[in-house]
């Protein structure tokens, strides 16, 4: 009898829990709307890339030939793997495997860090060669190459900022998971962090061939 009443109480609690104002669908939709603004932000830059490539095809090809496509490919693999680990962390949390979910998110953050370290070495190498605004090497280049490197720094730089923001976002989500604020039945925040991280991955999926492979 006591057991029964305990269950009843639990049921009531769960029932009242369902009335706590929480709209996962709305939260998800808001995240998607935000991602659409991100698409237009990067989309505008991609459009700029497309139009200038159309006008300065030779300059773009010459500039892309200088890029280190191995670092680009490695970074692609890193981001793809980090996308996998975010997806796995959601699946793990759904199965109430909190430790695994947190581990996967740690792995994602480490992937983000490795990506940024690679980017640092890459940029340092290019800046070291004098390719920077007002740099000696850039001044002797054709218009097409100058525009290419301008877009390269802006687009990969903006993407890098997004990687940093994504890592901070995931960091907050990890804090909430460890405090059981995000759980197997209430994981929309994790899902939203995942959506953001996947978007960052998708942008790189386009940046990689456009800047590293088309020469």
């Amino acid at each position: 009898m006591t057991e029964h009443s305990e269950v009843m109480q639990e049921e009531t609690q769960i029932h009242s829990g369902a009335h706590v104002h929480r709209d996962d669908e709305g939260s998800k939709m808001a995240m998607w709307l935000f991602l659409f603004t991100e698409l237009l932000l990067f989309g505008g830059l991609f459009l700029l890339y497309g139009s200038y490539r159309f006008e300065y095809a030779d300059g773009f090809k010459a500039a892309a030939a200088d890029m280190n496509s191995v670092i680009g490919a490695v970074n692609t693999l890193i981001l793809l793997t980090s996308s996998l680990s975010v997806a796995l962390s959601i699946a793990a949390l759904q199965r109430k495997q909190k430790a695994l979910a947190l581990g996967m998110l740690w792995f994602t953050i480490i992937c983000g860090l490795v990506f940024l370290v690679n980017k640092y070495f890459e940029w340092s190498h290019e800046i070291g060669m004098g390719i920077y605004p007002g740099g000696p090497a850039l001044e002797n280049m054709s218009n097409g190459e100058i525009i290419y490197f301008g877009l390269y720094y802006v687009m990969t730089g903006l993407h890098g900022l997004h990687v940093i923001v994504g890592m901070i976002f995931i960091g907050f989500v990890m804090f909430f998971i460890s405090r059981d604020k995000i759980t197997a039945t209430n994981y929309q925040k994790l899902e939203n962090a995942g959506l953001y991280w996947h978007l960052v991955d998708i942008i790189w999926i386009f940046l990689f061939p456009l800047f590293y492979l088309l020469h």
Binding site: E10, I14, E25, T185
Partner: peptide, 14 residues
């Protein structure tokens, strides 16, 4: 209790 739990789950988490 589990059924209630599942029902709640379906309503809220996509």
């Amino acid at each position: 209790a589990n059924q209630t739990y599942n029902a709640e789950h379906t309503n809220t988490n996509n």
